[in-house]
């Protein structure tokens, strides 16, 4: 049956070796890129890091500039984003996984969420500007409805204007699809048998969800939450549309305050031609990365704690 010309084994092994070399070089390159990025940022930025840098406002002179306003802005905006996006994402995931009948409508909603996760974040900025900052023009921005005094912590107004709340809500829209998809995956990891056991004891659907499914899925959901919040911390484009790039000399006092965030401050400094500003941009990047790392490790720690009783 052996018609045909034999392919020399040496050639086949050469292909084999070439593939391995190609894979190894690609992987090495990926690692090298990350190292180059971190090293170049640290070399440029380390010298500008000190207490003055963390505790001062912006300045026209690079040497005097600090990141207090963007740092606080990032914390405010991300807190709002997390408070909105995480519960909303979990609720949506719960509905889709535990309640929704498997109809065409559900797969359409699912496809819609996948699509939302692919919408460029700057487009969310445009939506946020129209919906939150301007209330679709239903109420004039020049004559807003207000609640409380502008100096108080609890000051509110409609439309929200270009403040912290509008920024946080916009970011929540950006990360919501990521959060939903992650929470859904977490819920899918809970074995069906666990749910059946609870149902067989006469639990209502919600009791199954609240007492069995959610606690079992919680550690994995935390990972999803970390993922979406890391994305939120680094987002700049939608906030640029909402708030613009501001040089602020104050930290946010309430939900309506003007704000800027670290990535926008980095953008502003990095875009200037002078080397001095590149140095403080690199300094701000280091702060940003440390913040990210801190956030990830706290979340990992909590997740670790939560996982223990289940093992």
């Amino acid at each position: 049956m052996s018609a045909g010309r034999a392919i020399p084994i040496a050639r086949r092994l050469r292909h084999d070796r070439m593939l391995l070399i190609a894979c190894l070089s690609a992987t090495t390159l990926a690692v090298a890129v990350l190292s180059a990025l971190l090293i170049s940022v640290f070399i440029q930025g380390l010298s500008s890091l000190d207490w003055h840098f963390l505790s001062s406002y912006a300045s026209r002179k690079a040497a005097n500039a600090g990141i207090l306003a963007p740092l606080m802005g990032t914390l405010w905006v991300c807190a709002i984003c997390g408070l909105i996006a995480v519960p909303l994402g979990v609720a949506t995931a719960l509905y889709l996984e535990e309640y929704a009948p498997r109809t065409r409508l559900r797969s359409l909603v699912q496809l819609n969420i996948a699509n939302l996760s692919g919408v460029p974040s700057i487009v969310y900025g445009i939506l946020g500007l129209a919906a939150f900052a301007r209330c679709f023009g239903a109420i004039s921005t020049d004559d807003p409805w207000t609640l409380g005094s502008p100096d108080s912590l609890f000051f509110l107004q409609l439309p929200f204007g270009r403040g912290v709340l509008a920024g946080g809500l916009t970011l929540a829209l950006v990360v919501l699809p990521i959060m939903i998809i992650a929470a859904q995956e977490a819920l899918r990891t809970v074995p069906k048998s666990l749910r059946h056991a609870a149902l067989a004891l006469g639990s209502t659907r919600w009791q199954v969800v609240w007492k069995v499914t959610l606690p079992a899925a919680l550690p994995t959901m935390m990972t999803g939450a970390i993922l979406s919040m890391s994305r939120a911390i680094g987002e700049a484009a939608p906030l640029l549309v909402i708030g613009g790039v501001l040089l602020l000399f104050s930290v946010p006092e309430n939900l309506m305050s003007d704000f800027t965030v670290l990535p926008l401050q980095i953008y502003n400094w990095a875009g200037r031609p002078q080397d001095d500003f590149h140095k403080i941009a690199a300094g701000a990047i280091i702060v940003q990365l440390v913040l990210l790392l801190l956030f990830n490790s706290v979340a990992l720690f909590i997740r670790h704690k939560l996982q223990r009783p289940l093992q």
């Binding site: 170049s40 940022v41 680094g234 990535p263 980095i266 953008y267 990095a270 690199a282 990047i285």
Partner: peptide
């Protein structure tokens, strides 16, 4: 390592392009 890369804000890559 890939997760670290995925978590880096995009503005940092812009800075990297410009300065490196």
């Amino acid at each position: 390592i890939l997760e670290v890369l995925a978590g880096i804000p995009t503005v940092v890559y812009g800075f990297f392009a410009l300065t490196f």
